[in-house]
Simulated scan of single mutants.
Amino acid sequence: ERSWTIEPKDNVNEQILFRFSPLRGVVDSDDLSGEPVTFSLRAIDKAPEMDEKEAAKHEKSLKGIVYNLPGSARITLTYNRRMLFNEVLPVTQYGRRQALAPKMFRDKGPAIRVVFDEHTGAIRQINENNQ
């Protein structure tokens, strides 16, 4: 099992992620003994860029529980002209931080339960905690 970490900034078009050799398995991207496995990333939903003043104002407005509202991108992997993977996935770096209002979590009223996605920081579920 191998893993690669990719920090998405701009779109990526058919970058060689690694190569696959029938005799040696997964080899480095510059090892010509294998055929390339390419990676592409195309932003689908990306929060608009903010200038420094707008970003500072937005950060000041974040009161309460802060979470990520991720954007999304289409990710593809290809090998020997065959598509191995082609899906739209959430991308935290393309999103924006948001906040749940503090008044949601006051002592009066029912207890609120918030479940976050451990990979993206997005909210997966909000409901009353009926314990």
Rank of each mutant, 00 (worst) to 15 (best):
N129M: 11
F39N: 02
Q98T: 03
A73N: 01
V27H: 09
V27C: 09
F85T: 02
V88C: 00
A43I: 06
K57Q: 14
I65E: 12
E118M: 10
S72I: 07
V37G: 09
T78A: 15
Q125I: 03
K9H: 08
P8S: 08
R96E: 12
D117K: 02
A56F: 01
I6N: 01
V66N: 04
T92E: 09
L62H: 08
A55P: 09
A43H: 11
F116A: 05
R74E: 04
Q93C: 07
K9T: 10
K60M: 15
A55V: 03
I16C: 09
A101Q: 09
G121E: 12
E1Y: 04
R106K: 14
N68G: 07
M83K: 12
A43G: 11
Y94I: 06
V26A: 08
E7R: 14
N68W: 14
E52W: 00
D51I: 01
D117I: 00
V12T: 12
P36G: 13
S33L: 11
K63R: 13
S61F: 07
P110K: 12
E59W: 01
V115N: 07
V66L: 05
N68R: 12
V115K: 08
F20W: 11
K63T: 15
N86S: 14
A111E: 15
N127V: 02
M50Q: 15
D31T: 08
Q93H: 07
R24Y: 14
N127M: 09
N13H: 05
L77I: 01
N127Q: 13
S72F: 04
A101F: 00
P90L: 00
H58Q: 13
L69W: 05
N130S: 09
G34D: 11
V66A: 03
T38A: 06
D117T: 01
E128A: 07
M50I: 03
Y79W: 09
T78R: 15
A47V: 03
E49F: 00
R113W: 09
P90E: 01
I44F: 00
N130F: 08
E128F: 04
V114K: 13
R24D: 14
G109A: 05
E59L: 12
L32V: 03
D51M: 03
T38V: 04
R96T: 12
N13K: 11
E87D: 10
I75H: 05
E7G: 06
S40K: 04
K9G: 06
Q125Y: 07
A99H: 07
Q131G: 14
S21K: 04
R82T: 06
H58M: 12
R24Q: 13
